Simulated assay, not measured.
Amino acid sequence: MMDRDLFAARELVADLAVRAGRLQLERRDTLRMGAPKAHVNDVVSDVDIASERLIVDAIRAAWPDDAVQAEEGHGRSGASGWTWVVDPLDGTRNYVSRTGPWSVCIALYHQEQAVIAVVHDPAAGETFSAVAGAGALLNGEPISGSAGPPLEQALIGVSFQPNPATKERAGKVVRELLPRCGDIRRVPAALNLVYQAAGRLDGGLALDTNLWDIAAGALIAREAGVVLGGHGTDFSTELTIGAAAPLWPSLSELIRAVA
C-alpha cells in the first residue's frame, strides 16, 4: 500500500462527499423519483444517480485503474487491486420524505481490507472519516466510542432493509431487544455505525444490508474502538452488530439468539 498516500486520498474523497451532499441539499425541492428497485420500499431519485455520477467520475479521473462498486450502477472493474465502494445517498427514504438523516458513503478497499472511509451527513455538516490504523475523525477531530453502559441503560441503533422478509426479522429482534435495553433509534446503516464511533449510540445492529451501506461506517466504527461482529467472528451484510467493549457480551448474545 506504499504506492498510495491514503491520507491525501481520504481528503480528496471527503471533499467529493461534501460536494455530493451540497448537490443533495440544493436539489431536494426539485428531485424526481424513479421506479422502485428490489421492492416497493427500495426507492431511488435522480439525485441519487447524479450524486453517484459526481463521485465516480472524480474517482475514475484520479485513479483510472481502480475498480468501483456503486449502488446505482456506475461501477466498473479494475486492475490495480484497489476497489472503491460508494453509496451516494444512504437513507433515500429519509431524504425524500424529510423525516430523518441520510449520508454520503465512500470506502476504499485494498484487496479485501478496508483502508479509507468517509461518511458525510449533509444536513448536519458532519464528515466522519478514517484511515486504517490511524483512528477515526469527525470534522478533523478525533472521536471514540461509548464507554459502554449496562444493556438496560444503553441506546441502541437499529437498521434494516425495508423489504417484507427483513421487516419481519427486524420485528423479532426489536421485540426481544426493546424491553431489555435503555432505548432504540432507527437510523440508516452508515449513520448507525458512525454514531457508535462518536459515542452517540452505545451499540447497534444492521440486518440485510449491502456492502456499500456498511463498508465506510464499519471502518470508522472500528477505528473508534467499537467492537463489530455478526453470527461469526466478523460482521456481514446479513448481520452487523456493534457495541462498546463492555456492552458487547450482553448485546451480541441477545441479538445473535434472535437474528
Rank of each mutant, 00 (worst) to 15 (best):
G203F: 02
E152Q: 07
S144T: 10
Q161T: 11
R60N: 11
N210A: 13
G34S: 08
S77Q: 09
T127R: 11
H39V: 07
A62R: 09
E11Q: 14
S144K: 04
A257P: 05
D65V: 02
T99W: 00
R256G: 07
I116K: 02
P88M: 08
R169P: 04
R22T: 15
D202E: 08
A215E: 04
R76S: 07
V227W: 10
L12C: 00
V194Q: 05
L137I: 04
G34Y: 09
A197N: 00
A259C: 02
V85N: 01
A123R: 12
L138Q: 12
G81C: 06
E126Q: 15
A190W: 03
D202G: 05
L137Q: 12
A124V: 06
Q113H: 13
T233Y: 03
A62G: 04
A197G: 01
R19T: 07
R60E: 03
G171L: 09
L155H: 06
F128C: 10
L193K: 03
L228W: 05
P150W: 14
P88L: 02
I116M: 09
R200L: 15
D183C: 12
K172F: 14
L178A: 15
D208G: 00
V173F: 09
P149K: 02
E11N: 15
A17I: 08
S80W: 02
A67S: 15
T92P: 11
I241P: 08
A216T: 03
S103A: 13
E52T: 00
N192R: 01
P164D: 15
V47M: 09
H110Y: 05
L12G: 00
L6I: 03
V118A: 01
R22Q: 12
A165M: 11
E26G: 04
A38S: 13
W248N: 01
D90C: 14
P249G: 04
A123I: 14
Y95G: 03
G34R: 10
T92Q: 09
D3W: 00
N94R: 09
A165E: 12
R76V: 07
A107I: 10
G34I: 11
A124E: 13
L155G: 02
Q111P: 00
A62H: 06
S51D: 03
S80Y: 00
E176Q: 10
H231W: 12
V226D: 07
R93S: 12
I116V: 15
R256K: 08
S146Y: 00
H231Y: 13
L191N: 02
R186P: 10
I156S: 12
G125E: 03
G75Q: 02
V194S: 08
P164N: 13
S252E: 03
H74Q: 06
I59F: 02
M33G: 01
G199R: 01
C105H: 13
W248A: 15
G81L: 13
S250D: 09
D15W: 00
P179L: 10
A117C: 11
G34N: 06
A114R: 10
R19M: 05
A79S: 14
Y109C: 09
G225W: 00
A132C: 08
T83Y: 00
G21Y: 01
A79R: 11
R27Q: 12
M1W: 06
E112S: 13
V104Q: 05
D5T: 01
A189V: 14
E26A: 14
S97E: 13
N163S: 04
E52H: 05
G157Q: 08
A35I: 06
A17F: 03
Q161L: 14
T240E: 03
G73C: 07
N139F: 05
A61S: 07
E52L: 07
G75E: 02
L23I: 14
